[in-house]
Structures are given as C-alpha cells and as structure tokens.
Amino acid sequence: MRSRSTSVTVLYNINSKKDRKGVSLDRNNNFTTSREVEKQPRMVHTSSRHVNEGFFGVSKWIQHVSTRLDVEKHYEIGAVIGKGNFSSVHFTRRKVDGTKCALKQVEKRAMRGKCFFVDNEVEMLSLIHHDHIISIMDAYSTQTEYFIVFEHAQYGDLYETIRKNGRIDEPDAAIITLQITSALGYLHDRNVVHRDVKPENLLLVDKFNVKLCDFGLACHVLGPLYRVCGTPTYCAPEVLTEKGYSTKCDIWSLGVVLYVMLAGYAPFRAPDQNRLFKLIIAANIAFDMPEWKNISLKARDLITRLMNKSEDRRPLASQIASHPWILPYTIDSIDDE
C-alpha cells in the first residue's frame, strides 16, 4: 500500500469547522416524499470525441465473430441480471471449466455513434490490473452487437446492498471507501478518469470486497475535460458548469457514494434535473437529518472534504487513506481477511 505523506496531517484537521456550512437537506429536497436512493440513467452529451479526451481506437482485444452462436460455443449465456442504457448483463458460465462470469451484451444501434466508448473500455480494461477493479475475460463483436465477458460478482452491486439494508455501518463503509480509493488512486496516477463512480458500478465479489466496473465513460485526461456525462446524482459541480474538470470529479462522486452508504439517500434530490443540478452546483451539504445523529464527526469531515465545491481543495485519491476516519484500516489487512 502507498506510504502516507506527512503533509496530509495538515490537510486533515477535523477540528476545523471551515466548509461545513449548509442548509437542511429537507429544505433543499422537500419535493420528494422518499429519501431512498434511486437508480438513474447515465447521461452522455454528444457522441463525438471531445477535446482532451484520450481514447483508444478500435480495440485489438475484441474478437470479431459472425453471430451470437459463435460466443455461445465458449459461454453458456443465462438470465439477465442487470440492465444499462444500451446493454443487458447476463449470468454466464465458461464452458471449458464452468467458471461463473457476467456477460454484457451491447446493441451497437442503440449506441448511436458512441461505439468508440465500448472499444475504449475493452482496451483499457485489458491493460488494467488492480484488486479492486473488475477483470475482463473476453470480448466479441458481431455486426450488430458487442459481447463482453467479466468476472462474476456473486453479491451483486453496492446499490442493491444499500437498498436492502437501508444503510451501511461506519466500519464497513470505511473499508469500502478505502477500496474505491485504492482503485481511483491507481487510475488517477495513470491520468485516467472514470466519470461514473456510483453504487451501481461497485460490484461485490465478496460481502464487503468491492470492484469498480463500467469503464464506458473512462478516458485518459490530456487536459481540462468538458463533456457533460455521468449519472446526475453523482456528478461533480465542475462537470455541470462546463468550465473544465479533471480526475478530481471522481473524488466528488466518491463523496456522494460515501454519503449514500451512511445515510441511505443522496445528498441532493429534486423532482427535475435542472433543480438537481442547481443544488449540486451550490454544493451546500448538511448533516442535520436524523440519520446523521449517530454518524461520527470524522466520517462527516471526510464527506465534506471529498465534496468540496472547489476541486483544487479536494484531496487526491492517494491522500484519502491518511484521513483519521480511514486510518485504522489498510488495504493489506482487508485483502488478507
């Protein structure tokens, strides 16, 4: 695990009340009767490549075949276990050894000119090797569809866990946060941004062993990014204002994920997207709802830092492990359990 920098000690002074101002979440979000977190479709503005987005070209890792039957020679494709904007995910078994897998089937026509996102995801994941990032096993392409095979996550995704349990206890939330931080640190050190960090994209291969998935919006950062994309609830303010953003947008999204884990609902909610975006851009976070009564000040402090309106004032992914709330845990001790 990365050694901790002594400079982080100054960064994390949890006794400071600076940046903790906010208004009641009920007053900000009094249009909704339920605070339960809901799934939302991902948004991708424009299909063309944007300035400073580094994408791979056509992936050499994708095998071109005639029909789905060619894929079924190697994999037994089962029931649908998930759906995305342009895809469905099936429980699958590899025929040669019975290994459980997840197969994502993507309709090219539905992508509407965005097929380069799929090639980029496959090529990127073929080069990524990290304990907390999902592994790709195979990829196929027919004239009309992609079939991408990933390792199987037997416990589903973090969204379903939160929905089922309501909230996640602080120690477990801290462990999950550390794992996501490790994955983001790996990506950001390589100038890769994910741009869609959310509970649905955090798969549980064990009860509390998460792996980041869905690299459909990921790219190499060649300079300030301007594409408005991601899932609305988890988008950083700078993504929405279109003034240029960096890998730090993932740090904001991590803060929203942590908030959702501890509270069971999102920090900003509204009946329409325009209102939601205004709340996100204002970035007024408060912890005055009953759910926060027994949540530690250290946890709240980390959320406040991750969701700082100014991306320059958010910690790097590599610094988060040194926060007092995370400090009792290490990746090595978690992975050894």
Rank of each mutant, 00 (worst) to 15 (best):
I133T: 09
S88N: 06
I134D: 01
K39G: 14
F150E: 01
I162M: 02
L127K: 14
A79N: 13
T99M: 08
H152P: 00
C101M: 06
N85L: 09
A102P: 09
S141L: 06
L127V: 15
I77Y: 03
E151Q: 07
R35P: 01
V58T: 13
H152W: 11
H129V: 11
H152N: 03
Q63P: 08
R93D: 10
T99P: 11
I136Q: 03
I77L: 07
H130I: 11
E121K: 02
C115N: 12
K95S: 11
Y159Q: 11
H45R: 15
T92V: 01
V58Q: 11
Q143W: 10
A110M: 09
Q105T: 03
E145I: 12
V58D: 12
E151F: 12
S59L: 11
F31C: 11
L127H: 13
V44E: 08
D119H: 05
T144P: 04
E145Q: 07
S88K: 11
K100M: 11
I133Q: 00
H64K: 12
A79H: 14
T33G: 15
G78I: 11
H90T: 05
T161V: 14
K108I: 06
V118P: 01
T161K: 05
S88D: 05
M124Y: 10
Q154F: 06
V65I: 05
D131C: 09
I148S: 04
K108L: 06
Q40E: 14
A139S: 08
Y75A: 02
F147Y: 02
A139D: 01
V58G: 03
G78S: 08
T67Q: 10
Q143P: 06
E107F: 08
G84A: 09
V122R: 00
E123W: 02
R109M: 13
V65S: 06
M43N: 13
L103Q: 02
F116K: 09
F86G: 03
G98R: 03
I148C: 02
F147A: 03
E38P: 04
V118D: 00
R112P: 10
Y159H: 06
S141N: 04
F55S: 04
S87D: 06
H45E: 15
L158W: 04
Y155T: 10
V58E: 07
